[in-house]
Design a protein around this nucleic acid. Structure first.
Length: 421
RNA sequence: GCGGGUAUAGCUCAGUUGGCAGAGCGUCAGAUUGUGGCUCUGAAUGUCGCGGGUUCGAGCCCCGUUACUCGCCCCA
């Protein structure tokens, strides 16, 4: 019979990787809480309408990459900003404080062709600060992301920032951009030609060399922005400088979602190949009202965990080792096995990590197993031990052994473990 | 949506001109009747992805197909 395989683009996270992810998640939670961000969890699926309205119908994600079901009524979440904002509005979080600083660690789903660092089920952590248009919060958001990455030893990162203004400010620019690009129509790619009508701003994001050359002489969005937007951006830049964050301004940095306004940013690592963005975000001052809330400024970022793990792997990041076992019980004979099982049951309640034999194997095989499990101690129980009331405890690091009364076993706990032998 | 690569033991992979299905690692057992690591010895594990074709004979050649994978597009 054929075996059933996991769906394409998904991962089985086996214990070896699981412990790495738990470590990353723990570190991320710790740093988020230093910045006083609170964790939010939302449903795995949402009404499809939320993403159509939030991300934009013309984006690639919404137009062709969503996992929708039940007559398209519901969709597995492809990103977290729209769900977080939905929850913010639905639960009236604006009534509990002027600013909400939220973070998440969650799985997302996009129906794309998988490749290195891109999966159909993937995980991200990210943050959203809702309620403030202050430039300090923009700088905090970027600083927060950088600090998380620095925490994992990643320091040679390229940080790009830009401002893309709001819809009204972009209107005139987009007309000029269209005019300019229309003159170079023959040299544009098919996708760019399509975008010229649908979403001309995205053309700025092209990787096509010919198009980049054309864009070098194109009108620049920044020149069309209001003084207010420009001032905000300059303040963000100045603030980043004050806290010693190196960045580069990239006027061509635009992002894939329609909801972004004003500040946008991205962190790029050369370790990633074509999927080089590990971290990205921006301000989305209109999203809350687009989703039915009151006009509320907000900003957020997201970081791909699989991509982060690829970078860490390439840099031979030293994850903490898996916890070893404290005590392995090696037992021979039915009565001894019975005794050992009762003993581990007691010790586990005293936070001693212990194991016993489940395969009724030879003493030698049990010793090998204990060694493989990296057990600190082994306690050997057989018929003679049961009748004499004493057993052997062996320290595996140096082979030192000691005889102890059986009842001593029950007194072992975390603090006296290492003074027994 | 487009293009490339790969598919042989649990894992990593050899397999020559078409001629007995292999290695290393891992697993299990023994050397040591109740003591791990090191060493030695042995054992088990195969639909050679699947289907067809050529051939006396196919893991190898041809055609098809599926899966995986990498890249493009796009995205975190």
């Amino acid at each position: 019979m054929n075996i059933i395989r996991k769906p394409q683009g998904t991962l089985d996270i086996l214990p070896e990787d699981s412990i790495k992810r738990i470590f990353i998640e723990d570190e991320v939670r710790r740093i988020f809480s230093n910045y006083n961000y609170k964790e939010i969890r939302t449903p795995t699926f949402e009404k499809t309408e939320l993403f159509k309205r939030g991300i934009g119908e013309e984006t690639d994600i919404v137009s062709k990459e969503m996992y929708s079901f039940h007559n398209d009524e519901f969709t597995l979440k492809p990103e977290m900003t729209a769900p977080v904002i939905r929850a913010y509005i639905e639960n009236s979080l604006y009534n509990t404080s002027g600013i909400q600083k939220l973070f998440y660690i969650s799985n997302m789903y996009r129906h794309e062709r998988p490749q290195a660092g891109r999966y159909r089920e993937f995980s991200q952590f990210g943050a959203e600060a809702i309620g403030s248009s202050d430039f300090y919060i923009d700088a905090e958001m970027i600083s927060l992301g950088i600090n998380i990455l620095n925490n994992f030893g990643l320091t040679n990162l390229k940080i790009k920032i830009n401002t893309i203004g709001n819809l009204d400010e972009r209107k005139l620019y987009l007309e000029e951009l269209k005019k300019y690009l229309s003159k170079h129509l023959n040299n544009l790619s098919e996708t760019s030609k399509k975008r010229l009508d649908i979403n001309p701003l995205r053309i700025l994001d092209t990787k096509d060399k010919k198009e980049i050359e054309i864009l070098d002489d194109s009108p620049i969005l920044y020149d069309y922005l209001s003084d207010e937007t420009k001032n905000h951006f300059q303040n963000v830049c100045k603030t980043l400088e004050k806290i010693n964050i190196n960045f580069e301004v990239d006027f061509r940095l635009v992002r894939g979602f329609d909801y972004y306004t004003s500040t946008t940013f991205e962190i790029i690592s050369d370790d990633l190949g074509s999927q080089n963005a590990v971290f990205g975000g921006g301000r989305y001052d209109r999203l809350v009202e687009q989703l039915g809330g009151k006009q509320t400024p907000a900003i957020g970022f997201a970081c791909g965990i699989e991509r982060l793990m690829i970078i860490l792997a390439k840099r031979n990041y030293d994850y903490p080792k898996q916890y070893g076992v404290d005590i392995c019980f090696v037992s021979l004979g039915n009565e001894a096995r019975d005794f050992s099982f009762k003993a581990v049951d007691v010790l586990r309640k005293s936070d001693i990590i212990c194991e016993t034999d489940y395969l009724n194997r030879s003493i030698k095989a049990q010793m090998k197993e204990a060694n493989k499990l990296n057990s600190k101690y082994v306690i050997i129980i057989g018929e003679s031990e049961l009748s004499s009331g004493k057993c052997t405890i062996k320290r595996m690091s140096d082979g030192e052994e000691k005889e102890i009364p059986l009842e001593t076993i029950y007194k072992i706990n975390k603090s006296n473990l290492h003074s027994i032998v």
